[in-house]
């Protein structure tokens, strides 16, 4: 179970050690490709099982409920944090803003 975390921390260490080398910059792109392979594999598992196939509409509905839970829970948290800690609106813009690379493919 925690092998997967171990592997990730090994990756973080490797990424930090070799951060000056070019190949680390393409890790995100490579991860994107691997993610597509894994999603294809998940699809195969769903598609090849007749019982799961029949459940897809139920799964979609439950997914909607979980999405609503995530949105409502996090928006309530945002309201709470804003009202308790940031009422005066200060401090939010502090600090320089790091440049963001395009990581869209990774998601």
């Amino acid at each position: 179970m925690f092998n997967v975390l171990l592997v990730m921390f090994a990756g973080i260490a490797a990424g930090y050690l070799f951060r000056k080398m070019k190949f680390t910059a393409s890790a995100g792109k490579a991860a994107g490709v691997v993610i597509w392979v894994m999603l294809f594999a998940l699809g195969v598992e769903i598609g090849s099982d007749p019982e799961v196939r029949g459940n897809l509409s139920v799964l979609g509905l439950q997914a909607l409920l979980f999405a609503a839970a995530g949105v409502i829970g996090s928006v309530l948290a945002a309201v709470l944090v804003y009202r308790t800690l940031f009422r005066n609106g200060s401090g939010i813009a502090a600090g320089e803003s790091p440049d963001m690379e395009d990581r869209e493919g990774r998601r």
């Binding site: 973080i12 990424g15 910059a25 594999a41």
Partner: peptide, 21 residues
């Protein structure tokens, strides 16, 4: 798929560790 997942997690880790920002 388990082994592909390990590759994936390693790549995700490299992405975090090498983040210049």
């Amino acid at each position: 798929t388990t082994w592909i997942l390990y590759v994936l997690m390693f790549l995700v880790g490299i992405g975090i560790g090498s983040n210049p920002d």
